[in-house]
Every structure is written in C-alpha cells, then in structure tokens.
C-alpha cells in the first residue's frame, strides 16, 4: 500500500528549474531512498512532500493528505529531519525532546526515544556540547517524537565520520522496525545500497530510474568483466564463443560478458590446461549504475 504518491511534480525558483518532473510512490513500511547528486532537486522534492514549500505543478498525496492544503494534519503524521536544522544552542537534549513532544497530540515517550537513539547519557547536555553524530541523532529523535507514520530524513549522515555514520544507519533500521515508513535523501551510494528497499534516482530534476538497489545495478550495466594473464597462449576462438574478448598489449586478456561469463571462461581455460594469472573480476556497483544513469548522453 502506498503512503506517498508524487505525480509530475514541478518546481522552479525564478527561472531556475529545481524539480522538472518527478513521479514516485513510497510503500508503507519501506525505506525509500531518493538518490542524486547535489543540486539534483532531492531536497526541494522532500520539502514539498513535507509541506514546507508549494509546488508549481503536479500532485502530491501523503497518507491521503495534500501537503499544500492539509498542513496542520500533515505535520502531526509526518516527521521531518532537515539538513542543518539545529535547536537553540543552550537547550538541553531532554529539554528539547520534552518541548517538541508538547507540540504533538500523541507524542512518543521522550525517555524511551533517548534510550533508543543512545542519547540517555547525554540527556542533560546542551545542544552546543554534542558531537556531530549526537546532534544528528537528536535531530532524528525530534523528527520522531510526534510518533509520525512517515519520517523524512534529509542527508542524515553528511559530515559524520564513518563510525558515527554506521551507528546512525542502525538507528534508521530500528525506526523502520517500529513500523515507520522512511524517506531517506542521500547522495551517498553506500548509504542507499545498505539501507534502502527501493530507490528513486534523481538527476537534473527528473527521476531517471526507480527500483531496488539490485535492479538499478542490473539495469545500468549487466556486464561482468574478467581480466587475467594466461599462463600459456590461448587458442584462437576458444574464449570468443563465451565472451567478447579484448587483447591488451601487455598480454592481458579482458573477457566481458553476462551472468555466467566467469564460469564459462574459467572452464574453457581449464580444459586447455591454461591457468589465468593475476585474475581480477569487476562487478558493477550501484555507483556504476549511478554514473551510467546520470551521465548525460552525448548528442
């Protein structure tokens, strides 16, 4: 069942088009990634979904609500964690959560939320005393304190060290396990690949691909590439049956093909008693998919 439907969303600032044509659908209980380069229109898209900006065209429904018209009700059921949104520097962690809890009709228990986000020990610290990772976790806690059905998390781990980043990812998975639908905005491939059930890849204000991380990889580049130096000359025609072959000047052979190319090449070589030396296998990653799908075609 879909909780967010966006159709032909369009938004411009003056003459600059921020979102050209975005359509997407988010299902209940999933972690949905919105992936793209900086300036691709990700933040504008989620700020419209969250009712912070008005669209110039298209329709948006969040839990059946129109974000432009039903703002008050939307804000009770959607939690937003925005980029670089802080709280008052001298506000305490627990104080901030208690305050934000009072904004909602049916808030979560702040103490439990602190515990889940690993902030109990810092409950009495002031915001300005927190580390970057702790600030982000408080930020997530504030987005969740209203017991939202949908949480939108924008560039959650930007600026965090790898350790804090991994901790934050675990937090996101725990939130999903509570039954919250999550929209995760990111430009980090690793983050999207690790967390997201499905991804919309956005480039220059348009969705260029939607699917699971694996589907996107498969769509962008289905080839696997095998490189090796044969221990003995390879008979002409042996490998050409199973893969497309390129011979490099230094004697290295590059075999490119579909799913079974690895086994087929290795079996063919073994039958001739040839060993592949310096064997390397290149597999497409989401990063390759990202590059392939967002690089403009030369015309």
């Amino acid at each position: 069942m879909s909780v967010i439907q966006v159709q032909n969303l369009h938004k411009r600032y003056g003459s600059k088009v921020a979102v050209d044509d975005v359509s997407l659908e988010v299902h209940r209980g999933e972690i949905f990634g919105i992936l793209g380069r900086n300036g691709a229109g990700k933040t504008t898209t989620v700020e419209i979904i969250g009712g912070l900006r008005d669209a110039d065209g298209g329709t948006v429904r969040v839990l059946g609500l129109d974000p432009a018209r039903d703002r008050t009700r939307l804000r009770q059921v959607v939690g937003l964690q925005l980029q670089e949104s802080q709280v008052q520097p001298k506000l305490g962690v627990r104080e901030a959560l208690d305050l934000y809890a009072s904004f909602y009709p049916d808030p979560a228990d702040p103490a439990q939320l602190l515990d889940e986000l690993g902030l109990t020990e810092r409950a009495d610290a002031r915001f300005e005393q927190l580390s970057g990772g702790q600030k982000q976790r408080l930020s997530v806690a504030l987005a969740l304190v209203g017991n939202p059905q949908v949480a939108i998390l924008d560039e959650l781990t930007t600026g965090l060290d790898p350790h804090a980043r991994r901790d934050t990812w675990e937090v996101v998975e725990r939130i999903r396990d509570r039954g919250v639908t999550i929209v995760l905005v990111t430009h980090l491939m690793e983050e999207a690949e690790r967390l997201c059930d499905r991804i919309a890849l956005i480039n220059a204000g348009r969705v260029v691909a939607t699917g699971t991380p694996a589907e996107l990889v498969a769509r962008a580049a289905s080839d696997q590439v095998l490189r090796f130096r044969p221990s003995a000359p390879v008979p002409v025609g042996l490998l050409e049956q199973v893969a497309s072959i390129t011979h490099a000047d230094d004697g290295t052979i590059e075999a490119r093909g579909h799913e079974n190319v690895v086994q087929d090449v290795l079996v063919a070589l073994a039958q001739q008693g040839i060993r592949p030396e310096n064997l390397r296998l290149e597999q497409s990653s989401l990063e390759d998919a990202f590059v392939a799908l967002t690089t403009p075609l030369e015309v």
Binding site: L52, E84, Q86, V87, Q88, G146
Partner: peptide, 16 residues
C-alpha cells in the same frame, strides 16, 4: 540567530 541555525525552520515542520 535562530533563523540562521535553522531553529525556526525545524519548528515549521511541527504542528506548532
């Protein structure tokens, strides 16, 4: 200062 730090924007995501 509140606006620069995003305090006001964060509040605008809540019902208040």
């Amino acid at each position: 200062g509140y606006r620069g730090r995003g305090v006001l924007k964060r509040m605008s995501t809540t019902p208040v």
